[in-house]
């Protein structure tokens, strides 16, 4: 069911209100009660955390590959140990 589109005030918000934006008519439930606090600032927090986790994911993957690389280096035939070379 498409919620009715209510007119907004004279700000530019109207730009963002298309038929895609259903104006909520139900009270927030569950996760929404948290996310809508602080004028929806927690939505920004969620987005920043998602990006952070994405970068972390790559960090861990790179770390694992490096560990493998180090193991392969160790497995190479013994060489003359040259400290600081």
């Amino acid at each position: 069911m498409q919620a009715p589109i209510t007119p907004t005030d004279s700000t530019d918000a109207a730009v963002y209100d298309s038929v895609w934006a259903a104006i909520p008519d139900a009270p927030p439930v569950g996760l929404e009660t948290v996310m809508l606090q602080q004028d929806k600032l927690y939505v920004v927090l969620a987005v920043v955390l998602i990006i952070w986790f994405g970068v972390l994911f790559f960090l861990f993957r790179t770390d694992r590959r490096l560990a493998q690389l180090e193991d392969d280096l160790d497995a190479r035939p013994e060489r003359e140990d040259t400290f600081g070379a």
């Binding site: 963002y16 004028d39 920004v44």
Partner: peptide
């Protein structure tokens, strides 16, 4: 700027 619906989430 403060916009309806968007509010602080505009920072996204």
């Amino acid at each position: 700027p403060r916009l309806n619906i968007l509010e602080e989430s505009a920072r996204n």
